[in-house]
Nucleic acid binder design. Structure first.
Length: 295
RNA sequence: AGGGGUGUAGUUCAUCGGUAGAAUAGAGGUCUCCAAAACCUUAGAGGAUGGUUCGAUUCCGUCCACCCCUG
């Protein structure tokens, strides 16, 4: 067994649980593939594994950054590949687990990133003006005019390489032989889980965690990105009720789950498993059988 | 029981005697470093029944449902 396993799926289906059960059975170690869990101190909102839940299974790329630091898929790709290669050398099975589809894809596939240079953000130009600039150098672009972030990135790409971003070679080649396992359940059930989990988080430390960040005036990217903190800040300011803030958290989580499905269904070759919530061992065994068959 | 009011999308609310709009929830999608992000697309409605009218969701009657007041 020396293949790379990836466990994907929407938030809340039980990826973490499965990863630990698998790791124990196939001599594996877990590599976090969640963009928000790399940060120290963001625990409740990101549903990070606890020490007890790990059951002795080694975890990588958790808590490796401070909340004022920046961490991107570029960094993740490098870090994760180093760990994967190291584990493979030791004849252990790397198990990538997380909901950040881009991170997983960038690791497993031959995604090419370059060292980021300081870039021009064209602050004085309106969206459409920036778009028109891009059209001049990259008439084939498919980026929507409203998507300023991507437009600017594409413009900077051209400025750097004198090649239209549309012509950048996008390699869909796999670098490893991954077995990509997706956990899923029907939409109603998933939304129920997500809603309940939000209530649970609120009652189990999310308020303290968020309030502490709030009182330290922590507005870094790491704080603003995950769902669970910024939604509570208006509550701390007295602008909305706790119930309203909780509803926003649930809502955003549902939308997030939806986007995750879109990604995993269309960007990666995922083999899906219905989760048996009443008897999770069934799910674990099903997955194990599949892994065995594919190895 | 009597009086009054309201019935339009899952929800909240518009409009109109001539193709019923929006917000929001819902669904689908894009993606080579902001990815728990950013961006795009989209389905869906006049309580029921009779009448007036060329034409009714709109005006009128009846019924039903819900709300308020009185007893």
């Amino acid at each position: 067994m020396h293949k790379v396993i990836a466990i994907v799926g929407p938030t809340g289906v039980g990826k973490t649980k499965l990863s630990i059960e698998l790791a124990k059975k196939i001599n594996g170690e877990v590599i976090n593939a969640d963009s928000t869990q790399v940060y120290r101190g963001l625990d409740v909102a990101t549903a990070k594994v606890t020490k007890e839940e790990m059951k002795g299974v080694k975890h990588h790329l958790l808590d490796i950054k401070e909340i004022n630091e920046n961490y991107t898929v570029y960094d993740y790709q490098k870090d994760a590949r180093l760990i994967i290669d190291d584990l493979l050398k030791q004849h252990k099975t790397p198990i990538l687990v997380g909901g950040t589809g881009l991170y997983i894809k960038a690791v497993l596939y031959d995604y090419q990133f370059e060292e980021e240079k300081p870039k021009n953000t064209y602050p004085k130009l309106k969206d459409l003006e920036v778009y028109n600039l891009l059209l001049e150098v990259d008439p084939k672009t498919t980026i929507h005019p409203n998507n300023r972030k991507r437009i600017i990135r594409a413009l900077n790409y051209f400025n750097e390489h004198q090649v239209p971003f549309s012509d950048k070679i996008k390699n869909d080649k796999l670098l490893y032989e991954p077995i990509i396992i997706g956990l899923t359940t029907d939409r109603d059930k998933l939304y129920e889980i997500i809603n309940n989990r939000a209530d649970k988080m609120i009652n189990n430390g999310l308020l303290d965690e968020a309030r502490s960040l709030y009182s330290h005036n922590a507005y870094s990217k790491a704080i603003i990105t995950p769902i669970g903190y910024k939604e509570l800040f208006p509550y701390f300011k007295g602008k909305i009720s706790l119930k309203e803030a909780t509803e926003v958290i649930k809502q955003s989580s549902r939308k997030y789950a939806k986007r995750q499905y879109t990604w995993f269904n269309n960007q990666m070759n995922v083999h899906w498993f219905e989760v048996d919530f009443d008897n999770f061992d069934n799910t674990v065994n099903e997955v194990l059988d599949y892994i065995e068959k594919e190895s």
